[in-house]
């Protein structure tokens, strides 16, 4: 696997094209480009709506990390289950959840996916096999091995894609989950999105372990560090990890080296890092620019990019309008859904 980290410019020299993993076809790259751009523009709009006071509370944007979820999503099959933390809008859009319903939940409206009772951090879709949206750092990891447990209990070959950040990777229950998943050979891909900052604390200041992809080693969980800004690298690694799980060989850990451009949440002025650090990555390592360049090389013309950009803009505009104009939940919703059947 590539030793490249996101700040490094070096590329391993395995494959003829400069990459040592199987690439995506042009059609797949086009799909990835569309999916990533939708997340990017959706999140930019969410940030704007937050600034305008239409979104309240917490709002954690996925900007910069788009290649991770899109690359993994392309390695999934229907029935695979996904769970993540509170930085969850990207996962939801990648899972195919309706952008209008997501945006309307962000603005706390009745038409939101949780009827306005979940908010930015808490959305779910039984239909799309997305199990949230969890606000307690690390809790989704134990829940995620539970999704894998259910797959195994039912005798399917479906896997659980369990996302968490490098901030969560120091939580005790993550290691309890490693042990349980390895002990019971649960089909769980642990996807550690290392965006380098747990809120304002850099990974160097928070983790004694510097090679996070090796954190599962004591339990015999294979791990890889992956360039999370390169959708092809992500996809290749995810394919391998998912195949490992489907074959009944137990869990797999992928450390995605990625970066978040925005603050931890909207109210984070991001004083713990230099603006130049963000600019450097934006200019040289942007995951969407990367795909655009690959497509350009493959002969895709500007007019086609413009078409995608317009389509995405239209979807985001429509979602925004829907989220702004939908009614707030009826007060009668206050007492519904506390208990099933009551």
């Amino acid at each position: 696997m590539t030793e490249t980290n996101i700040s490094g410019q070096s590329r391993p020299d395995g494959a003829a094209d400069g990459r040592n993993h199987p690439g995506l076809t042009t059609d797949q790259l086009k799909q990835a480009y569309y999916d990533m751009l939708l997340i990017r523009r959706f999140e930019e709009k969410a940030g704007q709506l937050y600034g305008m006071g239409l979104i309240g509370g917490f709002c954690h944007l996925y900007i910069g990390q788009e290649a991770v979820v899109v690359g993994v999503q392309m390695a999934q099959k229907p029935g695979d289950k996904v769970i993540t933390s509170y930085r969850d809008h990207g996962q939801m859009l990648a899972a195919g959840m309706d952008p209008r319903g997501v945006m309307a939940e962000l603005t706390g409206r009745a038409t939101g996916l949780s009827h306005g009772k979940g908010g930015s951090m808490h959305m779910f879709s039984r239909e799309k096999n997305f199990y949230g949206g969890h606000g307690i750092v690390g809790a989704q990891v134990s829940l995620g091995i539970g999704l894998a447990f259910a797959n195994k209990y039912r005798g399917t070959d479906e896997v659980s894609l369990t996302y968490y950040g490098e901030g969560a990777s120091n939580q005790g229950q993550v290691y309890e989950s490693f042990n349980l998943a390895a002990l019971h050979k649960l089909p769980c891909v642990f996807i550690l999105e290392n965006n380098r900052y747990g809120m304002g604390t850099s990974v160097e200041r928070a983790s004694a372990s510097k090679e996070l992809w090796r954190n599962g080693e004591p339990w015999g969980i294979p791990g890889k560090q992956v360039d999370g800004m390169d959708v092809e690298a992500v996809n290749a690694a995810a394919q391998e990890a998912v195949a490992h799980c489907r074959a009944g060989k137990g869990p797999y850990l992928l450390e995605m080296s990625t970066y978040r451009y925005r603050g931890h949440s909207m109210s984070d002025p991001a004083k713990y890092r230099q603006r130049t650090e963000v600019d450097e990555i934006r200019q040289h390592r942007d995951p969407i620019d990367h795909v655009r360049n690959l497509l350009r090389t493959a002969g895709v013309e500007d007019a086609e990019f413009k078409k995608v950009e317009d389509k995405v803009k239209e979807i985001v505009a429509e979602a925004t309008e829907f989220a702004k104009t939908s009614p707030e939940p009826d007060p009668s919703e206050l007492f519904t859904d506390v208990l099933v059947g009551e």
Binding site: Y131, S142, L147
Partner: peptide, 21 residues
């Protein structure tokens, strides 16, 4: 049988319950 790991196995069971088990 579970190892002595209440936080982990309670979370695992809760995740399994979310799928309907």
């Amino acid at each position: 049988d579970m190892p002595i790991t209440e936080h982990g196995f309670a979370g695992m069971a809760t995740g399994a319950a979310m799928t309907g088990l």
